[in-house]
Amino acid sequence: MNNSSLDPAYTSLGFTLANSKYSCVREFYVVHFFFAMAMGVLGVVCFVTRLIPRLRYFHAPVGRAYIISLLGATASSLLIHNEGMPLGVLISFCWVLGGTVVGWLAIVLHRDILHNRALNELDRSKAELLGPSSESTKAQLQRIMRSIAERKTALQRMLSWKALHGILMLVSWVNIIGRIGVTFATFPKLSYPEFECYTYPAYKPVNSSWYQYTPGSPIQFLPSADPLYSRLPWAYSEGRFGTILLVGPSLAGFVLGLVYSYLSRRFGGSPKLQAVPESDAGSL
Results as ranks from 00 to 15, higher is better:
84 G>Y: 00
85 M>T: 05
91 I>K: 01
91 I>W: 02
94 C>A: 05
94 C>L: 06
95 W>K: 02
95 W>S: 00
98 G>R: 04
98 G>E: 03
100 T>C: 08
100 T>K: 07
106 A>N: 09
107 I>M: 07
107 I>F: 06
110 H>I: 15
116 N>F: 13
116 N>K: 14
119 L>A: 11
119 L>P: 12
119 L>I: 07
122 L>M: 10
123 D>S: 00
123 D>M: 00
130 L>P: 07
131 G>K: 02
131 G>C: 04
133 S>R: 13
133 S>G: 06
135 E>Y: 03
135 E>N: 03
137 T>P: 10
138 K>N: 12
143 R>A: 15
144 I>P: 07
145 M>G: 06
146 R>A: 15
146 R>T: 12
148 I>E: 15
149 A>E: 11
150 E>N: 02
150 E>I: 05
151 R>A: 08
151 R>V: 03
152 K>I: 05
154 A>D: 13
155 L>F: 13
156 Q>K: 00
156 Q>A: 01
157 R>I: 03
158 M>P: 07
160 S>F: 08
161 W>R: 14
162 K>G: 15
164 L>P: 01
165 H>K: 12
165 H>I: 06
167 I>L: 06
169 M>E: 04
173 W>L: 10
173 W>A: 15
175 N>P: 09
175 N>G: 06
177 I>P: 01
178 G>P: 02
179 R>Q: 09
180 I>V: 10
180 I>T: 09
181 G>M: 05
185 A>Q: 01
